[in-house]
Design a protein around this nucleic acid. Structure first.
Lengths: 224, 224
DNA sequence: ACCCTTATTATACGCTTGGATAATAGGCGA
DNA sequence: TCGCCTATTATCCAAGCGTATAATAAGGGT
């Protein structure tokens, strides 16, 4: 009646670490940070709990790498979207829209983000990760902005540009929050429209300058 | 050598519940939601753990009431600040500033907020509390906006007003986040200035219309 | 084809958790 | 002043936590 020990296949270090981190995110999103226990995570990853200590120094370190993954994932999506634009204006536009559109705007992502945010006042490691990703985002936005202003032939001082980046970042973050937490209150494209209108207002652009003919100047298929 | 059981004084139900909720918030802010255990909370409140079950159906219910307290606390501060203004313009201005200024902008408050936010996708009770406070905030903002537009003699459709409220809410939330998470990056009044400039841009007001002469039209002492 | 390394499992440990129960003392009404 | 009610403490419990350790099987190097 003895079952023996279960069979398994070995995996590369990179694969296993990836699997474990993904399983960690699954568990946090599904059961909350409380429910993301070592056993749950291992079970989700299809391994047993002890393996975690073989790849990470402890649960905490695994959580930190999971946090890093969430943040880089979000910014990579937005930056990739921006890169699809052919003009500085289109890149800025796409960057904004990507940040208030799935898959960035997604309840699961928000759960993960909030769970980690709540740790950064308590744990310095999480604070450092936040700081990194925040500065990276701000810098990406500032780069898009300066290129945009330059293309428009508009003279903007670096200080002014920083102020714009801060306000835009806040707006995007806030819309991302609102759109995810109260997704049922907003239509499919409503949030993106609000975002673009708000950004052009913030930059004191004429109405329609960013939001009017969405995606039309770079050959991408027009959204319906 | 028997110490006997410790002495205690009875308190009214309202007092004890208040104490326990405040202790809950203290523990979450200080140790994170993980560290907010029944025993820690009771200890902070100066009682023993069992008492919690005498006043609440369980730890979860206590957490929910704590969440409610945080949210009503924040909105009450902002609304009270707005009420100090003598004109619709001053009220809107004060409301905005209050939301990006201590004590609303405060690491402790942010920790609490994030800890609870991370629960609302998992637990419907928390989702309901969030929904309530979000709608209340949006409604307060919309009220301030309509009064402001009316006083300015500017015709704005309800739909437009809603759009403004959504964008302003996002901006305020985002600045609140930014200002709290990266407080060291912003000067004392910088965040409030950015907020007012951004709001007047969002509303397509002439520059300085909101931010120029802060607080000057209602007799309050001028900020330095 | 067989070792030898090590990735993986299995199990045990000490501790903490939220909750249930029983004992007790504070303080108000009579 | 006394007695009763109940707010509060003390203790216990089963379950779950993260981690440490030992056994084992996988699979590449020779």
């Amino acid at each position: 009646m003895t079952e023996g020990r279960r069979s398994y296949t070995r995996a590369s270090e990179a694969e296993r670490r990836e699997d474990l981190i993904l399983a960690t995110l699954d568990c946090i999103a599904e059961f909350g940070i409380q429910g993301a226990t070592v056993r749950q995570i291992a079970n989700r990853a299809g391994v047993t709990g002890g393996l975690i200590r073989h790849y990470f120094s402890g649960k905490d370190q695994m959580l930190q790498e999971a946090y890093r993954k969430v943040m880089t994932g979000m910014s990579e999506i937005a930056i990739a979207a921006a890169d699809l634009g052919n003009t500085p204006r289109a890149r800025l536009q796409r960057f904004i829209v990507a940040n208030v559109t799935p898959p960035v705007t997604d309840p699961r992502t928000l759960s993960l983000w909030a769970a980690f945010i709540s740790h950064i006042q308590t744990d310095a490691s999480f604070a450092a990760i936040h700081r990194d990703s925040y500065l990276a985002f701000l810098q990406a936005l500032e780069g898009l902005l300066t290129a945009f202003f330059h293309a428009e032939g508009r003279k903007v001082s670096p200080a002014e540009c920083r102020g714009f980046a801060i306000a835009l970042n806040a707006l995007v973050d806030g819309l991302w929050l609102e759109g995810t937490l109260a997704a049922d209150m907003f239509g499919e494209r409503e949030l993106a429209d609000v975002a673009l209108s708000a950004v052009e207002a913030l930059l004191r652009l004429p109405p329609g300058h960013l939001s009017g003919d969405v995606f039309s100047d770079d050959g991408a298929p027009q959204a319906l």
